[in-house]
Design a protein around this nucleic acid. Structure first.
Lengths: 110, 110
DNA sequence: GTAACCAGTATCACCGAGTATACCAGTTAA
DNA sequence: TTAACTGGTATACTCGGTGATACTGGTTAC
């Protein structure tokens, strides 16, 4: 019981660390919703800057959360494809959406 | 479809905003695990400082996530009790624990 | 020819979440 | 009487995540 409480907490904190900042989860969600191109993802997340999106996508590629592909067409075409690993986060995102809907209220954001 | 994607994103971002920092979710988890007293909660979350715990608990009381009760015993006894509203976050926490367990790996934290 | 799109990069600057450390008044156990 | 516990408060500091803004090189549509 004492032991399992500690183990639970560690798992929880790993997940929180993975979530990290403000944009990782919305980006995963956007990818899972079928958005693939840079500007497409950008438009699907109002408020995000190209800088933050670019930074996150790079990190997510390193962490095997997505595959970036450059097609040698003219003009150049770049796609971001979520990996199966990325999609394992789907349950949490769904629960977050459910909770957000259920507890909709006035929330002051900056 | 376009509309529902936006609505989904808003719900998601509300939840992320609610989670806020590093400590809110571990504290909710600790309360849901039955911890009630200040030092008890503090000990259940290695790494947290009294300052952060105090700050979070105050905010959570304002947000009706917990009820703080002072018992006029000697010595004074203070308890923090999670509200039903607080407990609605349980599903997300459980999913986070599940994900963290499944994707256990070396994660560099500071 | 110019405006708008794509896929980003480059700087600069901020600010607040989080850390570190010390302290307090009261109580209890050895 | 000294140490350790309870339930916190006070002060100072840091640092990195984020925002704002501008720019690039190429392409396409009007």
């Amino acid at each position: 019981m004492e032991r399992s409480q500690t183990e639970e907490l560690m798992a929880l904190q790993d997940t929180l660390y993975f979530i990290g900042g403000k944009w990782r989860v919305p980006i995963i969600n956007s990818l899972c919703n079928g958005n693939r191109r840079f500007r497409e993802i950008e438009r699907s997340i109002p408020g995000i800057t190209t800088r933050m999106l670019s930074k996150e996508l790079k990190e997510m590629e390193l962490n095997k959360l997505l595959v970036r592909t450059v097609y040698d067409e003219i003009p150049v075409l770049v796609t971001y494809e979520p990996t199966p690993y990325c999609r394992t986060f789907g349950n949490i995102i769904q629960e977050m959406i459910n909770w957000g809907r259920a507890h909709r209220k006035v929330v002051i954001k900056q």
